[in-house]
Structures are given as C-alpha cells and as structure tokens.
Computed example of a mutant assay.
Amino acid sequence: MASMFEPSMSSSLSRQLPMSATAPSMADSLPSINFGFDELRDRMAKFSARFDTFIEQGRKRVLEERNQFRMSIAELQEDQRMKKKDMEILQLRTNAHQQTIAKEAAEKREMQAAIASLTEQRNKNMASRDELKKQIETTQKEIDARLAAQRAHAQHIEAQARFNGPELDFWISNLCLTIEGAGKTDRLKFVYTHIDERDWEREAWFELSTSSRDYDVRHCRPKLEREKVERVLERVNESRELVTLLKGMRELFVEAVKQ
C-alpha cells in the first residue's frame, strides 16, 4: 500500500512555507492513492444484486414451501375427513352387522324352540301312533274273534235249523205257536194262542233279539217278570236249544194269565 498520509505534517509545512501562485502545489507532489472505490462500488452492486437475488429466491422458496405446507395440511385435513367419514360408515356397518347378528341369534333361538316343540309333538304323535297301532291290533283281534264266533254260531244255527226243522214244526203245532217278523232284521216275534182256558183265541207274544250270540227277549205281552224271563234265557243260552225258550215262555204266559 502507498505511504500513509499524515495530516499533521502537511499542516505544519503549509504554515511554514508561503504559498506562491507560480510554485507547484504540495498536493501535486504527493503520491496518488487509489482506494478502489469504483471496484468496491461495483462489487457492492454485484453483492447487492446477488443478495437481492438470494432474498428473492429465498422468499419464493419460502412461499412455495408455505404453499406446499398448506396444500399438505389441506390434503391431511381432507384425508382426515375422509378417514373420519370412512370410520363413521364402518361404525354404521358394524352396528348394522351387530343388529343383524342379534336378529339372527333371536331367529335361531326361535327356530330352536320351534324345532324342540315340533320334536316333542312328533314324539307324542309317534307314541300316540304306537298306542293306536296297539289298540287297532287289539281291536282287530277282537273283531276276528267275534267274526269267528259269529261264523261258528251261524254254522251251529244252520246245523241246528236243519236238525230242528221237523222238530220246530212239531212244537209250533203242539204249542199253538206262529212265528212272525218284528219289523227288524235281527228280531223275530213268537205269538201263542190257547193259553187262556177262558179265551182260547187270546194271544200272548214276545220278541226275540238275535243280534248277538246270546238270545234276548226285548218285548212281551202280557208283561212278565224280568227275573223269570232271565232264568229262561239263561237255560236257553247254556243249552243253545230254541225249544227250551219256546216252552219256557209259554209256561210263563200260561202262569201270567191265570193270575
């Protein structure tokens, strides 16, 4: 660097030496000092331009980053809103699913109760069916036994009728007896005459029921004591001989008209 300028020395020299209009100036004899202001100014201008550019770029970057941050925040908020909406939808679906499960559980319990009731009813029906089968079998056996007894009785009656035909004609003649229908297929009416010595034309009759294996007297005129009729029927049902009934009933009628 050039020699240092000392103001105090120059001042003293100026005071000591008179100034002359023709004499060269002291300043002209001083060495020239270049401080580089233009270069400094140019450098400062370039620095200012670079600094302004840096500031502008920083400002733009800050604005971009802020805008990007705001966009990110908005996206996050939108994403959060969508997530919240999805959670609400999921909660609604969960509630609906839970309600469906509860409804299905209730329906399942109802179906199980219905199945249990139907099963119980089926078991009862099966038990009733088995009982009815047993009753049907028992009834069928009874029917078969009765049919067999009726067939045997019919055969016996047929055989007895063939055997007793002439004998029955004999007793009809000797007992003054006629046989008539009683208005029903299972009844016969037996009419007696000559039972009253005071009136030989007086009639006495009874109706015989043949609907069952045992004989039974339903109606008679004149009226007889039931106990006496029962004793006659008992002898007839034991012997299975119709003539016993005819003779016994005539004797009861003769006894009744004498009283």
Rank of each mutant, 00 (worst) to 15 (best):
V257S: 00
P166A: 05
Q77C: 09
A2N: 01
E131Q: 11
R41S: 09
Q259T: 13
W171N: 00
T138V: 12
E234W: 09
L224S: 04
T185R: 08
E203H: 07
E227R: 03
S20Y: 14
D196M: 05
M87Q: 13
M9R: 12
E110T: 14
Q68C: 01
R129C: 07
E197K: 12
R226V: 02
S10H: 15
P31Q: 15
K184V: 06
T178K: 13
Q140K: 12
T22S: 14
Q91W: 04
V229K: 11
E207Q: 01
L90A: 09
Q77G: 11
L76P: 00
F253I: 05
R231P: 00
V217S: 03
S211K: 03
I73N: 06
E78M: 04
S72M: 01
P18D: 03
Q57T: 08
Q99N: 05
K103L: 10
R93D: 10
T100S: 12
T139F: 09
L90K: 05
A154W: 11
K124A: 04
P24Q: 13
T178I: 15
M44D: 10
K124N: 10
K189F: 03
V254F: 01
H194V: 05
R109H: 05
A74M: 10
Q77D: 12
E203I: 07
G36H: 11
K184M: 04
A154D: 15
M82V: 14
H153A: 11
A204D: 08
Q98E: 12
Q140S: 13
E131A: 15
Q80Y: 06
